[in-house]
């Protein structure tokens, strides 16, 4: 049944006034997978569930640990040791009884293309670069829209591959209208505006393709507008692939990170100071306000993608919580 009930209308009133009823109807048919329900994942889940999608599946095999209490908003302190997806279920359901909430405690690596094909949108967080690349490619084959994102201390990113994405954009057209002035003596030109919907298409590249862009070809102006977080992400991916874990706040890991920084930037032909030399002091764990910012941006992109309303950000978003800058960058070989 696609008719929105009066109860739903009352609950979603303030957002229907923003994105319209058609967008809301498409949202309530969308099935979303969120793989990785840490602090960042929990922010994404909260915003998506509040918006009123059809279903959300929380996939995570990990157990709740102390560190989660600094950023995960769907669990409580008595959940330590429990599976984190399972622990998040009750609170997730409370956020919006209209949404079906499913939990999957299996490992991400056990999932096949057919599994991902059951969703309209797949979001992966807290995973390795290889997992991102593989799942992105499976999703592309199955025409499933793919998102990845994460937060590392003060830094965060999100990535979208919506394939060939059709969307509607509302454009305000101004027209000059003659309106007589109160005293009737003069006529005054007044602007009146009209809103028209325009259908558009955006084409995305895969994560794998995006990584092939040669940044040496970016000019100085373009580099100034680019975010160092793209390279911080690569440094952390490299760290993870070497150590099978993310770094923690200690001098050993700090040293390793500085070395990887040099390697990665040199390999990319970038100046070493493109990533500040103290980044390793600010890239551990998940800082809650950064998860809120990046989770807000990513969830809004998921909502746009489901509702096919408004132009999606193409194709990376980077946030640096130390200088408060959020950048959208289209990273793709030109």
């Amino acid at each position: 049944d696609s008719e929105i009930t009066n109860e739903e209308f009352a609950q979603y009133d303030r957002q229907i006034r923003l994105w319209g009823l058609d967008a809301q109807k498409r949202l309530r048919q969308s099935k979303i997978l969120v793989a990785g329900v840490g602090g960042f994942g929990s922010e994404v889940v909260k915003n998506i569930v509040l918006s009123g999608v059809f279903s959300v599946t929380l996939l995570d095999e990990r157990k709740v640990c102390e560190e989660d209490f600094c950023s995960q908003l769907l669990i409580t302190t008595n959940h330590v040791g429990m599976n984190i997806a399972e622990a998040s279920k009750v609170r997730t359901q409370e956020l919006n009884p209209n949404v079906e909430v499913y939990v999957d405690t299996e490992s991400l690596d056990s999932k096949t293309a057919d599994y991902f094909a059951k969703f309209d949108i797949v979001c992966v967080t807290r995973c390795t670069l290889q997992q991102r690349l593989d799942i992105n490619n499976m999703c592309r084959k199955k025409n499933v829209k793919f998102f990845s994102g994460d937060v590392f201390g003060f830094y965060g990113y999100c990535f979208l591959d919506l394939g060939e994405h059709e969307y509607v954009e509302e454009v305000t057209v101004n027209k000059q209208v003659a309106i007589s002035v109160e005293d009737g003596s003069a006529e005054e030109k007044t602007k009146s505006s009209e809103t028209v919907s325009i259908k558009k298409t955006a084409t995305f590249c895969s994560y794998e393709t995006a990584l092939k862009e040669d940044w040496k070809l970016r000019n100085r102006r373009s580099l100034r507008q680019s975010s160092s977080v793209f390279y911080i992400l690569q440094i952390l991916d490299e760290f993870q692939s070497r150590h099978q874990r993310l770094p923690i706040q200690n001098s050993m890991d700090s040293l390793t990170l500085s070395l990887i920084r040099k390697e990665i930037l040199t390999k990319a032909g970038m100046k070493e100071n493109f990533v500040s030399d103290d980044f390793q002091d600010f890239c551990c764990s998940v800082l809650s306000p950064v998860a809120a910012v990046v989770g807000g941006v990513m969830a809004q992109e998921v909502i746009k993608a489901c509702s096919k309303k408004n132009k999606p950000h193409q194709n990376f978003f980077f946030f640096n919580g130390l200088n408060h800058t959020g950048i959208v960058d289209n990273i793709c070989p030109k």
């Binding site: 009133d13 957002q15 923003l18 807000g296 969830a299 809004q300 408060h324």
Partner: peptide, 22 residues
């Protein structure tokens, strides 16, 4: 005079507030 409001924008704003606080 209803101003539309959504969770994601508020989440972003509140995150930015805490970063200023820090």
């Amino acid at each position: 005079n209803i101003i539309p409001a959504i969770a994601s924008t508020n989440a972003i704003v509140a995150g930015l507030i805490v970063l200023q606080a820090l």
